[in-house]
Design a protein around this nucleic acid. Structure first.
Length: 111
DNA sequence: ACATTGACGCCCA
DNA sequence: GTGGGCGCCAATG
């Protein structure tokens, strides 16, 4: 499995845990930033998860597009990849509304 | 060193 | 449903 390294800063054990967990999210399912943080034992650190995903290399093999916010919406700005995220999700059969909303009830993945 | 900025989330009004 | 306040914290200016 290819773990996308942080471009500059050192990769911490928590980084590895997060990437490993994210890599296990199956196609057609989504998880929230908060979920990822909680499951690796870093509650209330959803923001840190987003910050980590933000610096993933563009060619990362990690399913970054399966991460949405607790509101069930795509957080990534349209011009910064939000469009691509919606496309990737739809390609996996996930229904994404025009405003980037996804049904957590239908697609949320639980480890 | 200090201030601001986010791929966030929970709580409350 | 919406909006404000706070916690969180690495990156950035």
């Amino acid at each position: 499995m290819v773990i996308a390294p942080r471009s500059v800063a050192p990769v911490t054990p928590n980084d590895i845990r997060l990437f490993t967990l994210l890599a296990s999210v199956p196609p057609g399912r989504v998880v929230t930033y908060g979920q990822l943080a909680d499951f690796i034992g870093a509650p209330r650190r959803a923001r840190w998860v987003g910050q980590l995903l933000r610096q993933l290399p563009k060619d990362s093999s990690l399913p970054w597009h399966r991460v949405i916010n607790a509101q069930g919406k795509i957080s990534l700005p349209i011009l910064e990849g939000g469009r691509e995220q919606a496309e990737r999700l739809r390609a996996e059969g996930v229904l994404v509304s025009a405003d980037g909303r996804v049904s957590l009830r239908l697609y949320r993945w639980m480890p």
